[in-house]
Structure formats: structure tokens, C-alpha cells
């Protein structure tokens, strides 16, 4: 594992901690898209079907369990916790996320590394992760004002993707047979979705102002 991959995993972890912190400390999930969070649950469950069949390392196994557990906890809070669920901005979270699930699954049936149950679900999870942030980004755009922790959450998620791209570049030059075009292309698409957000994030940071997205 190289430093970029590790930095990517850590920023991913930080994003989840920031989100859990926001929900726990403020007892509020305003500005957070339940649809994006539900998509992440599907992404992790579909991708980590290999938990019981392929052992890579203790690190990988622990991280997989943390990602599954934390995404389930977030969705549980937003749906079941009495105080938290009242703060959910349902009317702003109207993205038709079922289409993303359906589209990703069809794409996985067409484009995959091997035609096996696990590999189809792995490819599905890669495609779905690439678009899972869309309901969240649309929600941010709609509300215009982004509270601090929500902004940090999306920032760290985007940083995670950026580090994974650096990780692939590094692996491409250091590993003789590194070719994983499904993950790399999907990763590029996914990171591109954050470009707009990053632009406004850095402007607000430079001006030391509250993050605001144009309508």
C-alpha cells in the first residue's frame, strides 16, 4: 500500500467521522442526503461480498467492516432516531436515486472483469459509488447555504477520491501489471463530480467566508 492510497482511506474515514460527529453533536442531519447515504450502504454491501472469500489484510477487513457499520449507523440515525429524523430536509432530497441503482446494475451486467456473481456486484458497487454523491451535491446546490460540517464532510469525501487517483498513477508506474480500467475510469468520473464543489469550497476558504453554492 502506498501513501496516496493510505491518505485516501484516511480522508474517507475522516469524512465519515465528521458526518457522525455532526449528527451526534448537533442531533441534526440537516443538509445531509439520506439517498446518498442509502446508496453508500448498497455500495459497501455489494463490494464487500468478498469479506468471507478473499482475505487481503487485517487492515482491509477492518476498514470494510467500519465502512459497512458506519454507513448503516448513519442511515439508521436518519430514519429511526427520533430527534435526528425530524431535522432531515426531505423536500430538498428528491433525487430519483433508484435510477442510479438500476443504471449501475445494468452497466455492471454489460461491463465487468469476469461474469461471476461477486464480480458483477463488485463492478455494480464501483459504478454506483461513482454516482452516489449526486443526490448530496444536488441537495447542497438547492439549499445554497452549506453548514460547516456538511461542507467538511463533502470536502473530505472528494479528497478521498483525489488521493485514490494519485494512488492509481503511482501504481501504474511502480507495478508491472497494473491495469484496472473499470475502477480508474469510474474513479475519474466520480472525482469530476466534485470539481464544482471544490471550486466554491476553495473560494470560500480563500475569502474566509461561509461556503455558498450558486443556485
Amino acid at each position: 500500500m502506498n501513501i496516496f492510497r493510505f491518505a485516501g482511506d484516511m480522508t474517507h474515514l475522516i469524512s465519515i467521522v465528521v458526518l457522525l460527529l455532526k449528527i451526534y453533536a448537533t442531533k441534526s442531519c440537516s443538509g445531509i442526503s439520506l439517498k446518498t447515504q442509502e446508496l453508500y450502504v448498497i455500495v459497501f454491501l455489494a463490494r464487500y461480498l468478498d469479506l468471507f472469500t478473499d482475505f487481503i489484510s487485517v487492515y482491509n477487513t477492518v476498514m470494510k467492516l467500519v465502512f459497512i457499520g458506519s454507513s448503516l449507523a448513519i442511515v439508521w440515525c436518519m430514519r429511526m432516531h427520533r430527534a435526528v429524523k425530524r431535522t432531515y430536509d426531505k423536500e430538498l432530497d428528491t433525487f430519483r436515486h433508484y435510477f442510479l441503482v438500476l443504471g449501475s446494475f445494468v452497466l455492471a451486467l454489460l461491463l465487468h472483469e469476469k461474469f461471476t456473481f461477486q464480480e458483477i456486484f463488485w463492478a455494480f458497487s464501483i459504478y454506483l459509488e461513482a454516482v452516489a454523491i449526486l443526490p448530496q451535491l444536488v441537495m447542497l446546490q438547492r439549499s445554497g447555504n452549506v453548514d460547516n460540517l456538511t461542507g467538511q464532510y463533502v470536502f473530505f469525501l472528494g479528497a478521498y477520491r483525489a488521493f485514490y487517483i494519485l494512488n492509481w498513477i503511482y501504481r501504474f508506474f511502480t507495478e508491472p501489471h497494473f491495469s484496472r480500467w473499470i475502477a480508474c475510469l469510474s474513479g475519474l468520473v466520480q472525482t469530476a463530480f466534485y470539481a464544482d464543489f471544490f471550486y466554491y469550497y476553495f473560494i470560500s476558504w480563500k475569502n474566509n467566508a461561509k461556503l455558498q453554492l450558486p443556485a
Partner: peptide, 10 residues
Amino acid sequence: LPQEQGHDEL
């Protein structure tokens, strides 16, 4: 060279 075993990224 050995084939990659499974997906090693998260």
C-alpha cells in the same frame, strides 16, 4: 507473474 488475487483496494 502471479495474477492479482481479488480486489485489494477498498
